[in-house]
């Protein structure tokens, strides 16, 4: 019984370490930038991607039907459009308003103005767009949803936000801040371990052919294949390095001695994905999540002191 209790206490110690809100500020500003860039990148195609059948690329209804097959409770843009119709707003106007709100939510997050409502709006509007897009969504959307989901549940605002200066909110509980940091950290460990393990199971990552194939995909080939051929001997070690970096992330990112090396390795990998494959949104959200989770020193004496006095 005592043993069980000890384990439970150790688990609680792991889950609720006292932390400062530095990481939260990093996540908020980074995701604000991410949402703003997402909105700007899709500005010219927004209506085309999310208009109804006959007006857009494939029609929003198709993606929404697929989403509704999973569950009719998943938010989608049609909810907003139906709501808009009830006040005589056209589909185009609602889509424009949704885009403006998403863009504004991103800007507010960056500034730290109305942090919680901005985080909830950004999460909801992005989720609606990702789900209505259905077949058009890709990995970056899932990571954005996850990061925004954690952000809106975290104890906002942080002390660097405008809200904190204006309203003079009380300092947040360091253990609660630590809990949400742990959630983000464990999430990233899952992402890289599973991703790395799946890559290890493919022969193409051991001989460099997968890196070659990824880099020469027609829409992604920012780097010419002729240049890649010159570096062909580096592709196998790079492929193996990616597998090992990812699969061992949950071990070495926790160790103080190796944390910086692994973090730099992962950040470099994502920067390379962004620059060499043109997947800027994917790269940015992963860099933001990694920096917030492991790149910011959050254990301060102030946090520990607050925690101790809180426990007494």
């Amino acid at each position: 019984m005592t043993r069980l209790r000890e384990r439970w206490e150790r688990l609680l110690d792991f889950l609720f370490p006292p932390k400062t809100d530095m990481w939260l500020a990093m996540l908020r500003i980074g995701l604000g930038l991410q949402v703003t860039v997402y909105a700007l990148f899709l500005r010219s195609d927004w209506h085309y991607l999310f208009a109804s059948i006959g007006k857009g690329l494939v029609g929003r209804e198709l993606g929404e039907a697929m989403t509704s097959f999973d569950s009719p409770l998943i938010p989608k843009l049609s909810w907003l459009i139906t709501l808009g119709r009830s006040v005589n707003m056209s589909e185009e106007t609602v889509l424009t308003v949704a885009w403006v709100c998403l863009f504004s939510a991103g800007c507010f997050l960056m500034l730290g103005l109305f942090c919680r409502p901005a985080a909830i709006s950004a999460w909801f509007l992005h989720l609606c767009a990702a789900e209505s897009g259905g077949l058009l969504a890709y990995g970056a959307d899932n990571f954005m949803t996850t990061a925004l989901f954690y952000l809106m549940l975290s104890p906002l605002p942080d002390r660097f936000a405008f809200d904190h200066w204006v309203v003079k909110t009380k300092a947040k509980n360091p253990e609660l801040l630590g809990f949400w940091l742990r959630v983000l950290q464990v999430q990233l460990c899952f992402v890289y371990f599973i991703g790395g393990l799946a890559k290890c199971l493919g022969n193409g990552w051991w001989n460099g052919s997968n890196l070659w194939r990824a880099l020469i995909r027609s829409s992604l080939n920012v780097v010419s294949p002729d240049i890649l051929v010159r570096f062909k001997y580096t592709l196998p070690p790079l492929g193996i390095a990616i597998c090992l970096l990812e699969v061992s992330y949950p071990i070495f990112i926790w160790m103080k001695r190796t944390r910086l090396v692994w973090l730099i390795g992962i950040l470099a990998m994502h920067a390379a994905i962004g620059l060499m494959m043109g997947m800027y949104l994917f790269a940015l959200v992963m860099i933001v999540m990694n920096l917030a989770a492991f790149g910011v020193p959050c254990t301060s004496t102030r946090a520990q002191a607050t925690s101790k006095s809180g426990n007494q």
Binding site: F149, V191, G195, W205, R213, A214
Partner: peptide, 19 residues
């Protein structure tokens, strides 16, 4: 609904096992 809301409805095996 929960999985979609949290963005965790799909696994993380991007570009795996092979591209």
């Amino acid at each position: 609904t929960y999985l979609h809301a949290a963005g965790v409805q799909a696994g993380y095996s991007f570009f795996a096992p092979n591209v």
